[in-house]
Amino acid sequence: MPIRLALVGIGKIAQDQHIPALQANKSFELVAAVSRSGGIENLPCFADIGDLLASGLDVEAVSLATPPQGRHAIARAALEAGLHVMLEKPPAATVSEVADLAARARDAGVALFATWHSREAASVDAARKWLAGKTLRSARIDWREDIRVWHPGQEWILQPGGLGVFDPGINALSIATAILPEALLLQSARLEFPANRQAPIAAELSLRSGETPVEAAFDFLQTGPQSWDIVVETDAGRLVLSDGGQRLAIDGAEVSAGANEEYPRLYRRFASLVRENASDVDLTPLQLVADAFLLGERIEASPFSF
């Protein structure tokens, strides 16, 4: 029998990614939406998680695609009701919130899946396998995109808890922590905050993976060509992972990859976790962002408006 699932938060990412992935996955039956701003055609829509739980609708799992601020309360209510929970990235507003949810899922005997969709990009697995056993010399992350194109009018991203440029930048950190053979540790950070905002619009991080220096630059004001690239120099050549993990090249030669199925792969993994009553909660990318806020030098930048 398919897992009866409700999708919480019907915004752009839900419309673009979650709904198509769910509709194509026979392990799930999408039975309801939870949103104050829009629903899903031909499905009941509830204003909040409390209304869903009180309705008596037969639901086994929820997938949360809401902004991270306030997500802990939604997930906690679902877990306490015995539902399995999948979390869009970043999994919550703070590291401690996710740790609390992981403990509650364990106590309740249900699945909790903190997802990092960019780890499921087409070439990430191949990059990790190629780097294994190599001597790394340096790595560089460039994650530059136009906030007005990719997040039009999404004020929450630049509010406290919205992560600012780390909302896309955490995707790069999720990939880097998956492909680099040793733990990624922050050394220093420089964060640019618009004078009228509470989250950074740009950031530069210096990190280290073992003895390998790793430099990262994140920019939310990139115009023209956008870039989501990771370059690793090794004793066996240069690895370039581009387009957010979709494309891989070794010393300039393209390595063929399969179809890019980030969200279908996430939902296949979630179905497996639900059947096993198991959890998959990796806090590492969120912890690195928290470390950047702890160590980062704060620079005031020009005011920003959408």
Rank of each mutant, 00 (worst) to 15 (best):
E262H: 05
E262K: 09
E262L: 02
E262Q: 15
E262G: 09
Y263R: 01
Y263E: 02
Y263C: 03
Y263W: 14
P264Y: 01
P264N: 03
P264C: 02
R265F: 02
R265Y: 00
R265M: 03
L266C: 12
L266I: 07
L266N: 07
Y267Q: 00
Y267T: 00
Y267H: 14
Y267G: 00
Y267N: 02
R268H: 13
R269Q: 10
R269C: 06
F270P: 06
F270W: 12
A271W: 03
A271C: 05
A271D: 08
A271F: 02
A271S: 13
A271E: 02
S272C: 01
S272Y: 00
S272H: 05
L273I: 09
L273Q: 08
L273D: 06
L273R: 09
L273S: 12
V274M: 09
V274A: 11
V274N: 10
V274C: 14
R275L: 13
R275H: 14
R275K: 15
R275Y: 06
R275P: 04
R275A: 15
E276Y: 03
E276H: 07
E276F: 03
E276S: 13
E276I: 01
E276G: 06
E276R: 15
N277R: 14
N277P: 00
N277F: 12
N277E: 12
N277Q: 15
N277A: 15
A278H: 14
A278G: 09
S279H: 11
S279W: 06
S279R: 12
D280E: 15
D282S: 13
L283Q: 12
L283D: 13
L283E: 13
L283P: 08
L283I: 14
T284W: 07
T284I: 11
T284H: 14
P285M: 07
P285I: 08
P285A: 12
P285F: 09
L286H: 08
L286I: 10
L286F: 07
Q287P: 06
Q287V: 13
Q287M: 13
Q287E: 15
Q287S: 15
L288T: 08
L288H: 11
V289L: 04
V289W: 05
A290Q: 14
A290S: 14
D291K: 08
D291P: 03
D291R: 07
D291E: 15
D291M: 04
D291L: 00
